[in-house]
Design a protein around this nucleic acid. Structure first.
Length: 582
RNA sequence: GACCCCAUAGCUCAGCUGGAUAGAGCAUCUGCCUUCUAAGCAGACGGUCGCAGGUUCGAAUCCUGCUGGGGUCGCCA
């Protein structure tokens, strides 16, 4: 719709240039907005106000000229001037009905595939080995997954990259402790509590000198490719990822073991990278370490900041890994675009690694590297979120609590459900609520973690959206129709019908925005508004009740069908399930 | 010390590239279930958009300064 108005306006502007009303070299940037207030029509442009000065005319007068010159179009029923010079456009309901008809007929609900599909590497989740996932891991995991699904829906090739923390000096200590635990249990073991495991390993390291010595020895052996250490290390990775996978499955996150590309993947590249950077004159030796000095960044003393890429003991740092990682994603994975869903605190570190990678020629200009940063999870006191005992809240505990609350609520709301169906619904509702609480917030800012907000099932929450969907399914059941196969063009007589139809046509814009801005909360806002419009329609426009004429009923069923389709697709992009009943 | 981010209703958050009367949810209050599921609907209450300047037809949005909070800054990741 915006595109139609844009075309018409462009034509008008070029006519005005020819007529000399506007300077010939003027290239105005067209801005067409949806109106907030229905009395201002459906769309508005501020074009006349922007052009008033160059045209040496007053805005309202100019608006009048624009309207007179503008070609007619069947989609627009009325054009008005309002306020200081806004031009308001009113959409013809017949055109809107056509769009609904198209949306119903299209599997993609009128969302076009990208004109130029890209290869996009999405780096998200990235839990640490030998640590249990905590609540703050939801952010990267769930937001990254939603963007991943959205990009795929738009026809891009997406490579999921789970950049797990599977390397570093702590692995000597972990291997040494795993050895002890295994000996005690005389066989392979299940690390039921990874947090405790890590704590105990650390304790041994701090208190037992022989253990610490053995740990340091294991680090060296592991890095040297020692088979025993490699095996033990692999065991730690496998046990951790097995546990993480249970969380992914439970949360309906589309990551699997084949997406694991941890830090260790780049180890073999590191020596050559340092050599190459030195050969290119980018890295120099300083106090025994290899350092890249960047003029773009200043250190504490105000001089160019030195980024260490190899320690004086020969060890590598995570900046080196991230340089290698960027190189790998371009050279091996063929990335056109790389998205990093990582904590905002890593911003400077990533910028440095990327600056070096670009200077070294590993990442060409046209490949974009984007830090899709998110803020920290804070407690109610505004400080970094911790439990009373100072630890983190386990993700599992949050999910368990969510299911318990959902189960209790459903038992109360709907007594007709069998136990197994209720449990199934409870899982879907609970996981949806937890994910949505995170997805619906702008990812860039810090946010407050609160059990009750996170586990709410009322208002702007996933269950509200799921509920809207089940209401539609219920209407289909009662009407005896298959909601997925409805086709045709609705009549849009009531205000609630028009508002709903109009909201439905915005889906495509929103999906494209989510992909461009890597912000799923835009989709959440949209789906909430859509569900809200549907709820109003549901109250105002009965479908199956007595006294509803056949043609009206058929028309309203079409609107229900289109709404169900968009809700299901939209929630699917967020990784949230829809239900037949709840 | 340098650099980056943030500040919107009692609480949690939206607010797109500057646009018309700053919006939701929660909480509080008033109505609405013999009628497609009340996890809902309709409505009320609630604001010095941190403060002060500037840019302009127009600023929560852009610029400068200030205050307050958070983060980061060579041998952890």
């Amino acid at each position: 719709m915006k595109a139609i108005i844009e075309t018409l306006l462009l034509e008008t502007v070029s006519q005005m240039k020819q007529a000399g009303t506007l300077p010939a070299d003027l290239e105005p940037r067209l801005q067409i907005d949806r109106t907030k207030d229905k009395s201002h029509g459906d769309f508005a442009t501020n074009l006349a106000m922007m052009l008033a000065k160059p045209a040496k005319s007053n805005p309202r007068q100019l608006a009048q000229q624009i309207i007179e010159l503008m070609p007619e179009h069947a989609a627009i029923s009325k054009i008005e001037i309002a306020g200081p010079g806004f031009i308001n456009f009113f959409i013809n309901p017949d055109h809107l009905a056509d769009q609904i008809s198209q949306l119903l007929a299209d599997e993609h609900a009128s969302v076009q595939l990208a004109a130029t599909p890209q290869t996009v590497v999405v780096d998200y989740s990235a839990p640490n080995v030998a640590k249990e996932m905590a609540v703050h891991h939801i952010r990267s995991t769930v937001i990254g997954d939603a963007v991943t699904r959205t990009l795929e829906f738009l026809g891009h090739k997406v490579v999921r990259a789970n950049h797990i923390g599977d390397w570093g000096t702590q692995f000597g200590m972990l291997i040494a402790y795993l050895e002890i635990v295994q000996n005690e249990q005389a066989s392979d073991m299940e690390l039921s509590d990874l947090e405790a495991f890590y704590r105990e390993a650390k304790k041994h390291y701090d208190e037992d000198e022989a253990f610490a010595e053995r740990s340091r020895n294991y680090v060296v052996k592991l890095q040297g490719g020692d088979e025993y250490c490699q095996t033990m290390w692999r065991k730690l990775v496998d046990i951790t990822m097995e546990q993480n996978q249970r969380n992914y499955d439970r949360l309906n996150v589309s990551l699997s073991d084949k997406d694991v590309m941890g830090e260790s993947l780049y180890n073999d590249m590191l020596p050559a990278i340092v050599d190459d950077l030195a050969a290119q004159g980018l890295a120099v030796e300083d106090a025994g370490a290899m350092v890249v000095f960047l003029d773009e960044y200043k250190g504490k003393d105000g001089d160019a900041m030195g980024v260490i890429i190899r320690k004086k003991d020969g060890g590598y740092l995570y900046t080196t890994t991230d340089i290698a990682c960027a190189k790998y994603r371009v050279a091996e994975l063929g990335a056109d675009r790389v998205l990093y869903f990582i904590d905002s605190r890593q911003a400077m570190h990533l910028q440095q690694a990327w600056t070096i990678a670009r200077k070294a020629g590993y990442v060409p200009e046209q490949v974009s590297l984007e830090h899709c940063a998110f803020g920290m999870m804070l407690g109610k006191d505004g400080k970094p979120f911790k439990t009373r005992s100072g630890g983190t809240v386990k993700l599992v505990d949050l999910l368990d609590e969510a299911e318990e609350r959902a189960n209790a609520l459903i038992a109360e709301k709907n007594q007709d459900l069998a136990d197994d169906e209720r449990a199934e619904i409870a899982t879907a509702v609970a996981m949806a609520a937890v994910k949505y609480a995170d997805l619906s917030k702008n990812r860039t800012t810090d946010y407050i973690f609160d059990w009750d907000n996170m586990l709410s099932f009322e208002g702007n929450t996933a269950p509200y959206l799921q509920y809207a969907y089940t209401r539609i399914q219920s209407i289909f059941r009662k009407a005896g129709v298959d909601g997925d196969s409805l086709t045709g063009s609705p009549q849009l007589n009531e205000a609630a019908e028009q508002a709903l139809a109009q909201k439905l046509t915005q889906f495509s814009d929103v999906v494209n925005n989510v992909a461009a801005k890597t912000s799923p909360h835009l989709l959440c806002t949209y789906l909430y508004e859509l569900a809200g419009q549907f709820m109003s329609f549901y109250e105002a426009c009965p479908v199956n009740k007595d006294g509803v004429a056949d043609d009206v009923r058929a028309s309203r069923l079409l609107l229900c069908g289109a709404t169900a389709k968009v809700l299901k697709l939209g929630l699917g992009l967020l990784g949230i399930a829809t239900l037949a009943r709840m």
